[in-house]
């Protein structure tokens, strides 16, 4: 089972850990950061929804390879993916995060929270107009968005501090996915059996590698849940600001999940 979890994870990772580590100091130039910041809020939301959807597609492939997942009824497969896909992406983000300068790998380079500023407010051109009119220079249209981005970075930082191996990250992702306490499961007992097997295998791995202290240091599950509901709140606030935006602006899988 341990081999299956690691193999499934490695086969469905977009980037190898060594590659992400090797490039961890390749950061965006200040001009490149400005270009991201000058984008309109809608453009940046669509861009991030696109990247997130790609990551979620990898999660679906990961799930399909996990022993026992495809034996569940399709209703439960969908329930588990709907509830867990974003959480798995957030856990996996620690592999693509440089905790030394608080940057994350995004579209080919590493960038900090400032890269995502346009998600929460109008681009720099809008700020210029605001200043000319004597209003606040950085009026925030979705102030909660900056909290969401910082919380996601804080979460990645706290996971990075645990220095998890690929096997450990793979198990954390598998356990986030095969969670028998998700609401609306039809065959909860079947999921609980899979979850139980994963937990035993994970404990054995931790014992073998003398990493048993990891379990006590993991962030509580409520923290992931909170990040997911913050994401939904911001998405709803974004839709209220842009009621005319065509649904087709977001990838179909993103619309289906959120």
């Amino acid at each position: 089972l341990t081999q299956n979890v690691l193999k499934s994870y490695l086969e469905t990772c977009a980037q190898r850990t060594e590659e992400l580590q090797r490039r961890r100091w390749e950061t965006f130039s200040s001009q490149e950061v400005c270009a991201y910041q000058r984008q309109s809020m809608a453009e940046m939301w669509q861009r991030c929804a696109g990247r997130l959807t790609e990551a979620i597609q990898q999660v679906v492939e990961f799930a399909k390879r996990l022993q026992g997942f495809m034996d569940l009824c399709q209703h439960d497969q969908i329930v588990l993916l709907k509830a867990g896909a974003l959480e798995v992406v957030l856990v996996g983000m620690c592999r693509a995060f440089n905790a030394d300068n608080r940057t994350v790998f995004f579209e080919g380079k590493y960038g900090g929270t400032e890269l995502f500023r346009a998600l929460g407010r109008a681009g720099d051109s809008g700020r210029g107009r605001g200043q000319a009119e004597g209003t606040a220079s950085d009026e925030e249209l979705l102030p909660g968005c900056h909290d969401l981005i910082s919380s996601i970075f804080d979460f990645a930082q706290s996971l990075c501090a645990l220095h998890c191996s690929d096997s450990e990250v793979a198990f954390l992702c598998a356990l986030v996915l095969l969670n028998a306490s998700r609401p609306w499961l039809q065959e909860q007992a079947k999921v609980a059996v899979l979850q139980g097997h994963l937990e035993v295998a994970f404990r054995l791995l931790l014992r073998r590698t003398q990493r048993e202290e990891l379990l006590a240091r993991l962030p509580p599950a409520g923290r992931l849940r909170a990040l997911c509901s913050q994401h939904l709140e911001q998405l709803q606030a974004f839709h209220r600001l842009h009621p005319g935006l065509l649904p087709a602006a977001f990838p179909p899988l993103y619309r289906e999940l959120f």
Binding site: Q57, V60, E61, K64, R65, M70, Q74, Q77, I78, L81, K82, P252, L253, E256, L257
Partner: peptide, 14 residues
């Protein structure tokens, strides 16, 4: 309701 997820799950391991 979950057309895309159904499709992704039904496709063989790609």
């Amino acid at each position: 309701k979950h057309r895309i997820l159904h499709k992704l799950l039904q496709n063989g391991n790609s």
